[in-house]
Lab assay of single mutants.
Amino acid sequence: VTTYKLVINGKTLKGETTTKAVDAETSEKAFKQYANDNGVDGVWTYDDATKTFTVTEMV
């Protein structure tokens, strides 16, 4: 189990959250659901070296 981080650069929501998951794909699903639940829709990137997802909304 690995800890993954999500950085949110939204128009109205900014911040970070973490989750523990067995792999990046599992954490990505959880993070995308979290973003969707909070009305964040944007461009996703992933940095495997830091286990960090970033979602950026276009303004």
Rank of each mutant, 00 (worst) to 15 (best):
V1H: 10
V1T: 12
V1C: 15
V1Y: 14
V1Q: 12
T2Q: 13
T2C: 13
T2N: 11
T3S: 06
T3A: 06
T3I: 13
T3K: 07
T3N: 06
Y4G: 02
Y4I: 03
Y4K: 02
Y4N: 02
K5N: 05
K5W: 11
K5Y: 15
L6N: 02
V7K: 06
V7E: 04
V7H: 05
V7D: 02
V7C: 07
I8L: 08
I8T: 03
I8N: 00
I8F: 07
N9I: 14
N9E: 09
N9K: 11
N9C: 14
N9T: 06
G10F: 11
G10P: 02
K11N: 10
K11S: 10
K11V: 14
K11G: 08
K11D: 06
K11A: 11
K11I: 14
T12Y: 14
T12N: 12
T12E: 09
T12S: 10
T12V: 11
T12F: 14
L13C: 15
L13E: 05
L13A: 07
L13W: 15
K14L: 07
K14V: 10
G15N: 08
G15R: 13
G15W: 15
G15H: 13
G15I: 15
E16G: 09
E16R: 07
E16T: 14
E16Q: 10
E16Y: 14
E16P: 04
E16S: 12
T17H: 14
T17P: 03
T17W: 15
T18Q: 09
T18M: 10
T18Y: 15
T18E: 10
T18D: 05
T19M: 15
T19S: 07
T19W: 12
K20V: 14
A21P: 01
V22P: 13
V22H: 11
V22K: 13
V22G: 09
D23V: 03
D23S: 09
D23G: 04
A24P: 10
A24G: 04
A24S: 09
E25M: 12
E25T: 10
E25W: 11
T26C: 06
T26N: 06
T26A: 13
T26V: 07
T26K: 06
S27E: 01
S27P: 04
S27G: 12
S27C: 13
S27D: 01
E28N: 05
E28A: 12
E28Q: 11
K29W: 08
K29I: 11
K29P: 01
K29E: 07
K29Y: 07
A30S: 08
A30P: 01
A30L: 15
F31S: 00
F31R: 00
F31E: 00
F31Y: 02
F31G: 00
K32V: 06
K32L: 07
Q33R: 11
Q33V: 09
Q33T: 08
Q33G: 05
Q33S: 08
Q33K: 14
Q33Y: 05
Q33F: 05
Y34L: 06
Y34K: 02
Y34G: 00
Y34S: 01
Y34M: 05
Y34P: 00
Y34W: 15
A35R: 02
A35D: 01
A35F: 03
A35P: 01
A35I: 08
N36E: 13
N36Q: 14
N36P: 01
N36T: 13
N36K: 15
D37E: 13
D37T: 09
D37W: 06
N38E: 06
N38Q: 13
N38C: 13
G39Y: 05
G39C: 08
G39P: 01
V40S: 01
V40F: 10
V40I: 15
D41T: 14
D41G: 08
D41L: 12
D41E: 13
D41M: 13
D41A: 11
G42I: 03
G42Q: 01
G42A: 02
V43M: 09
V43S: 07
W44L: 02
W44Y: 01
W44I: 02
W44N: 00
T45V: 08
T45A: 08
Y46F: 06
Y46M: 01
Y46E: 00
Y46G: 01
Y46H: 01
D47T: 04
D48F: 08
D48E: 13
D48N: 09
A49G: 08
A49Q: 11
A49V: 11
A49T: 12
A49F: 10
A49E: 12
T50F: 04
T50A: 06
T50H: 05
T50P: 00
T50G: 03
T50S: 10
K51D: 02
K51P: 00
K51E: 03
K51C: 05
T52D: 00
F53K: 00
F53L: 01
F53E: 00
F53R: 00
F53D: 00
F53A: 01
T54H: 06
T54R: 05
T54S: 05
V55H: 01
V55C: 06
T56K: 05
E57S: 07
E57Y: 08
E57L: 08
E57A: 07
M58P: 11
M58I: 14
M58Q: 11
V59Y: 13
V59A: 13
V59R: 10
